[in-house]
Design a protein around this nucleic acid. Structure first.
Lengths: 340, 340
DNA sequence: CCCGTGCCTGTTAGCGTTAACAAGAGTCCC
DNA sequence: GGGACTCTTGTTAACGCTAACAGGCACGGG
């Protein structure tokens, strides 16, 4: 005659344990001032009923949800995917859930919608994992009382960021080529509107300028292996004298190497190639790729650190300078001494 | 003297519009029986106050949250990452939020914890994106009234699944080698405990058996490029007569090719290699990789379809057979006729 | 003219939790 | 013995929304 047993609620536990529902709440929230004996009774009752607390109700009552929202652009890409993965684990360890909203097109309006949805969910903090210029504007428009962190974010006022030092990484990569004796060094840039693409371009330019070498126009690229391949063809055609290339990410680097190989150009014998990212398979490509390693796991963790700190602090926060995770050049076999 | 303006709630909108809060609710939920004029007034009031509905309160009142939970193992891997990405977009289009929980170790207990957390959040459905044997047990233990879908899931009773036809894909790959005249064909398997690894092994065996060819022990692998490289070394050492290899994923295939190249073995001249996954850069490796394409975007979309249907249906669902997304062999340059 | 039937709106009562307050019991000290 | 604590528990009122019910009004048919 009975319905299927509904999920037990606090009141049920309270009744079974012979206490008030508030006492159950106290046990759940580790309040001091609960007698050990009472706590045991409540715990036993919870176990017997298979009680699970309703986090929705909790969130409503506390006006705080212990959920971190993530706004991401393309979680398929190596960097965002890796960051998201470690971020989720770090968040869980800190007691937070993670809710992800991806933004298919990097238009400000789409970002704004994403923020709205997250706010409607009463998230207690937001991570912006969209390293585009368009995302920067959005952060400026974030509700002032909502803690936020940007990954690789530009200088949005009031929003702290966690970044891998892109300029420095590009400097390391380019200097490496210079030290090997290369003097004609090209660059394949990442997608327009991406901050990382600009920073890597910057680093490359700085290194060349510091060494007194010529700065060519960067070859266009969109992060994809295909665009790297196209850039490779273009390179041969336009600047056959180039012997070193700093490519803005590993996927494009691999496309570039393939184009060069097809054209009969030996890497690293005739042309040296450096990538960026250090994707998992970089060490197993032909040739093994020299590249700049980025510790995305660390980035994810630091994001949570910063965000949790902001959530904890009730007063107005100061902006502070970005948390910088260093990049590290990994020398493998795609670079060698300049041919003479 | 005033505090910073608190976020407006329904009552505020109602007051400004001169109606009851229930009418505001009706407008928000597209109820019939709201006069056009009233609707306009309410909408105007909402716009003026910048009202955002509180989804937490809504979820509590409706006892339903419009959130889909995803339990994933490693969202860094190509397949899960791609599936998750399209799933999130499809879910949003269907009016759902997505909450992700990753499980660092594939132990049943860890999966069970993940389910608990999702249930506590009152998610209205769950996608299990963890293609391991350990995850199958967990699905059997899912609350009976919680709609669920498994991706690449085994035969958990009552839980529908969306799969790419792995066995068929492996058959296509292996047959391709056979048709090219190869008779000594090895296999590098994926990580133990993964259902996909088993299915691909199966397909390989079936194809060989059907053709009357010898079935060797599969070489061990764990999906990583490194393990593919190791398998390549092992292969040369153990079975120098092998001329065709079906490798369970592209990353291992690329490691294998590198190992062979180092040993002076030409691909595809002396040994043909087929991968599985069709990662974005597969066409730009050296040589371009013949592989089996999986349409993960479609998998994500179908997951949402199935889940939404289950959520809508109030009565007990029948299990039905899995939704099968076909795999497709993409022939590139890493395979060629068997040498004689 | 009354009653039933659409339309439209308001009132009330939850949803399951936490917060705020109240209050009783025990302890300690003067 | 009384006041001021600390420890422990219970009662009540939110949190912001939706669901259920109860009207009021206009219209049409018997």
């Amino acid at each position: 005659m009975d319905e299927r047993p509904a999920r037990p609620v606090m009141a049920d536990v309270a009744q079974l344990a012979g206490v008030s529902h508030q006492t159950v709440s106290r046990v759940l929230n580790d309040h001091p001032y609960v007698k050990e004996e009472t706590r045991a009774k409540v715990l036993a009752a919870m176990a017997e009923l298979g009680y699970r607390r309703n986090l929705t109700a909790r969130a409503l009552a506390r006006r705080q949800s212990d959920t971190i929202g993530v706004i991401a652009f393309d979680t398929t890409l190596h960097g965002p995917a890796s960051t998201l993965f470690s971020l989720e684990q770090a968040a869980r360890a800190a007691g937070y859930e993670v809710q992800v909203v991806t933004v298919p097109d990097p238009h400000p309006q789409a970002f704004a919608d994403a923020v709205d949805r997250l706010v409607a969910q009463s998230v207690c903090g937001v991570v912006v994992l969209a390293p585009q210029r368009a995302a920067v504007q959005v952060m400026a428009g974030l509700p002032a009382d909502l803690p936020a962190v940007a990954v690789e974010g530009g200088a949005a006022p009031g929003v702290p960021s966690v970044v891998v030092d892109q300029v420095d990484g590009a400097l390391q990569a380019t200097r490496h080529l210079i030290e090997l004796g290369h003097t004609e060094i090209a660059h394949v840039r990442g997608r327009q509107d991406w901050l990382e693409a600009e920073a890597r371009l910057d680093g490359w330019q700085q290194a060349l300028t510091a060494a007194g070498l010529a700065v060519r126009d960067p070859l266009p690229g969109d992060w994809s292996a295909r665009s790297g391949y196209d850039a490779g063809l273009l390179l041969r055609d336009r600047w056959p004298e180039v012997t070193g290339v700093f490519v803005a990410n590993d996927h494009m680097a691999l496309g570039m190497i393939r184009a060069l190989a097809e054209a009969g150009v030996d890497v690293p014998g005739q042309v040296s190639v450096v990538g960026f990212d250090d994707i998992a398979e970089a060490g197993y490509l032909r040739p093994p790729l020299t590249t700049v390693h980025q510790d995305f796991a660390e980035v994810g963790r630091r994001c949570v650190d910063v965000l949790v700190e902001r959530i904890g602090a009730s007063e107005r926060w100061s902006t502070g300078c970005p948390v910088v995770v260093p990049g590290r050049l990994v020398v493998r076999a795609s670079t060698g001494p300049a041919p003479r």
